[in-house]
Design a binder for these strands. Structure first.
Lengths: 190, 190
DNA sequence: CGTTCATTTCAGCACCATCTGAAACGTCAG
DNA sequence: CTGACGTTTCAGATGGTGCTGAAATGAACG
């Protein structure tokens, strides 16, 4: 009764549990498992870590660790750190959840929302053009179609405005707004 | 120059463009391509459609169409419709984007957010237990770990509150709140 | 009941994202 | 310039999701 497998390090176990939860949250968010794990570990670790330690601690390959770090840096939630007299590169995570949330929303807006909104407007424009270039019963049908696409585009636009308000306000003010909102517009009110 | 392939039906082309955009938005949202396509087509079509028409129009198998419809009904954005004197089942989509957005947020909360929050609290509880069951330097480390997990849990909790405010308010009031917010907390203000 | 028509389920296949491991690359020290 | 070390890239392997097509199921009618 002294095999390494029997001696669970409590710290490691606490970490592991949290890492798995975070990794699942990341997946719901569209981020892959390894990336989520690496992010979680960096969040929990006070010191910065190098690729080697990450790979060993999480039981993943160096390649995977390297790619995950690259992703996280592209998301802007992990920083590269160098230590004088040390050839290695270390990495550390943003430690405030609201800050990284804000950062990822901004990044998603840029990568995903903006391009898809452009395509949506193109589709709406095409629908409008088609309806104007036709007549009779067909025109009526195309106008109805165009109306529906515009309706969806309006919704999407409002949704983007909502994102923008969030990005402009930041966490503290956001919280304030909602506290105010709860008073101004209680459940059942209009 | 009269082959079917050359004669593009403008209505169909308008629909197709929109369907592809919606399908991509769905994928960003974690919903698969076919489900997104079916949803888009049902949104655009004034009449209700049966599985056959869906499969033929979108060039997918009956099985796939059936499964996609099942998903959409589970999300609560598509209704089953029966016509007297007709053995077929027809389906129609919720036509107001804000309504279906509200519905999907509620459903996601139930399916994904609630279970993951439970696991997060379990992880936090485990961390607390571990730190209280230890002493000395190890205890200090575990307390720090616990603090970080709690910090993340607090963030997550605030995030869920935000969802709840949205669900309680609905679209109209939501818009009001944000118009108010823009005045109360202009960019740069605190 | 048996037949026909509509729908759902599901085994097997195809495809795509992710992971590994090793080679290529870059960089610093001597 | 050369060797050692650290990091990144990438081809191929793996695993998992989604799709098809056909069989099973169910529901209406004679």
């Amino acid at each position: 009764m002294n095999e390494p497998a029997d001696i669970r390090d409590p710290q490691r176990e606490v970490e592991d549990r949290f890492i798995e939860v975070w990794s699942d949250i990341s997946q719901l968010w569209g981020v892959n498992k390894s990336v989520g794990r690496v992010h979680a570990l960096l969040y929990l670790t006070p010191d910065s870590l190098d690729i080697d330690s990450l790979a060993e601690r999480l039981q993943i390959s160096h390649g995977n660790a390297s790619t995950s770090i690259r992703d996280l840096m592209a998301w802007g939630v992990v920083r590269r750190v160098t230590k004088p007299g040390d050839r290695k590169t270390y990495f550390e995570a943003e430690k405030d959840p609201w800050t990284w949330f804000h950062t990822t929303i901004r990044e998603r807006r840029r990568r995903e929302v903006v391009p898809v909104m452009e395509r949506l407007h193109e589709a709406a424009g095409f629908a409008e053009g088609a309806s104007k270039g036709s007549k009779g019963a067909e025109r009526k049908q195309l106008e109805e179609l165009h109306g529906k696409i515009e309706k969806f585009a309006d919704f999407a636009h409002e949704f983007v405005d909502l994102i923008d308000v969030f990005l402009a306000m930041g966490h503290g003010r956001m919280a304030k707004v909602f506290r105010t909102a709860a008073k101004l517009f209680p459940k059942g009110g209009g």
